[in-house]
Amino acid sequence: MNWIFQPWPWYIAGPMIAFIMFLLLMSGKSFGMSANLRTICTICGAGNKANFFNFDWKSQKWNLVVIIGAVIGGYIGSYYLTTDMAVAINPDTINDLNILGFMSAGESYLPDELFDNSSLFKVKNILILSIGGFLVGFGARYAGGCTSGHAISGLSDLQLPSLIAVIGFFIGGLTMIHFLFPLIF
């Protein structure tokens, strides 16, 4: 059972994700996490401002339960199933990140420079996290799905639009890391 405390290799994690999609399909639902962001807008009353949010949010309650589970899963995974939080990324990647100023690379789960609780008081970090989040929310809804909805569910169903969206994800991600990161950090 010792393996469970180690980081899970891709050949455990990938099949687990497929299994989660299978369970949701067999429950008559689909695997797509960004839909929750729209549901939360509707619960907050966004239906008064835009028609896009006029739908019966109760039909999406199951998905909100899934993300509540995802929060609990993060707690269980980190507090009960992990002894060492460090992520062993490629030494070359660590080197690149050190040059950008991320000294916590290879030593923690998320960069302390961005996600340490004290970063809540740094203007630059708040800006980076809010812009990142904004783009994720806007882009996911514009594209009609995120990693789970397009890269897993859509591609599993061999849908061309999902392939186009995933190509878009990579154009965006590569642009950010190779061209914009040196300007931001």
């Binding site: 996290l129 996911a140 594209a143 995120c146 154009i171 965006g172």
Partner: peptide, 20 residues
């Protein structure tokens, strides 16, 4: 898909987290 996807990708790389 392409424009929305690019916007999502920019955010995914910056925040390092997707909606799940």
């Amino acid at each position: 898909y392409i424009i929305g996807g690019i916007i999502f990708g920019l955010g995914w790389a910056l925040a390092g987290a997707c909606p799940g």
